[in-house]
Amino acid sequence: MSPHTTPIVDTENDLELTERIIAPDGSRQPNAQLDPYIQDLDAGMLRDLHRDMCVLRRIDNEGVALQRQGQLGLWAPCNGQEASQIGTARALAAQDFVFPSYRETGVMHVRGAQLGDYVRMWRGEEGAAYDPAVLRMAPLQIIIGAQTLHAVGYAMGIRHDGADEVAVTYFGDGATSQGDVNEAMVFASSYRAPVVFVCQNNHWAISEPVGLQSQYPLAGRAPGFGIPSMRVDGNDVVACLAAMRWALDHARSGKGPAYLELVTYRMGPHTTADDPRRYRDETELERWRRRDPIARLEALLGAELTEEHRASVQAEADAAARDMRAACLGMTTRPALAVFDGVYAEPHTGLERQRDEYAAYLASFEEA
């Protein structure tokens, strides 16, 4: 796909410059480029995508609630980005390996995360998150853009081994200005690494709007590295599924990396430590509420979305939130001094000194 060359800012018409299959009003739109990748899609599969997105939103809301109640140190909400995450993750093959940022709760859900896996890292418990070998997904990455280098290195190993895998890395619009992301694309293109770059452009890199960071579509950067790209309506779950199938097919067939820019919106804060009311207005937020990805799919499904399905989805979502809360509250936190255990195989005087100093620091709170 040829990149758009028209300068853009955060305008109401931004989504008109994207590939889509479901319009914001729920109507089906033909798309010559994406339609071949969804020939198998039927009403049952659409209902499954709807279920995934609804359960994800409930899990996300519960994560925010747990943080507000002091059970988690932090939470990175993905409200509004359900289509981008569920659509792309459902296109993955079981053997593919994902390198996420810190907001890919939906990708974790699709890859089979247990309910305790969502909160363990944000609670600061031992083990950090989940078993990467089981989920085929690297640990959540807080350092902006670092996971793209890991993904390309893994993909170079895939090519060396001749394996039938693709590495996939997710990052936000803010990360595209990081050197790591650009260096990763240089290596990916040079070595024709089977990797897919997935940029979730949610319009805000914390408090900086994407229009300030780049006056041109982010998908236009990839062709400069020799990487084909596609700019997709990130609130259209079917378009995200189809575009990801295109990208995976390109990478898996030996043609090298591919790049997706999914134009979506972060409805909540950057993390629960952020207050978006300080830098964005309610008019913009309301405009994106009308583009809600779940409501859009519901409009497309129409009568196919039965009351039985809705009740089943609600029950599953409530159960997931309940069990995630129970898993969180049931976790046993190690004593603070246990952070020094297992650092060295043999006794180490420097570590012992640090342990004694930290013990004295903790004791000072008890004395106070």
Rank of each mutant, 00 (worst) to 15 (best):
D96F: 03
L140K: 14
R120N: 07
E126W: 01
Q81T: 10
C78M: 05
R136H: 15
L92Q: 02
A93G: 10
R136V: 06
R136G: 05
M121S: 10
R111F: 05
G87H: 00
G73I: 12
M137Y: 12
E104M: 10
E125S: 13
I142C: 12
P139A: 13
T88Q: 01
A65T: 12
M108P: 08
V64C: 03
L66C: 08
M121D: 02
A133Y: 13
A91P: 04
G70S: 08
F97Q: 01
A113Y: 02
A138L: 09
E82T: 09
Q67V: 03
V107C: 07
V110P: 01
H109V: 12
A93N: 14
G87F: 00
A133P: 03
Y130G: 11
V64P: 04
E104D: 05
P132H: 11
R120P: 02
A91L: 06
Q81H: 08
L72S: 07
A128H: 11
L66D: 10
L92P: 02
Q114I: 06
L140A: 15
G124F: 03
I86G: 00
T88V: 09
R90M: 03
I143N: 15
R68M: 11
G124M: 01
S84D: 04
L115F: 12
A65D: 07
Q67C: 12
D60T: 09
V107A: 08
V98E: 03
V119E: 02
E104V: 08
L135V: 08
A89S: 13
Q69Y: 07
P132L: 11
P132Y: 11
I142F: 13
G112E: 10
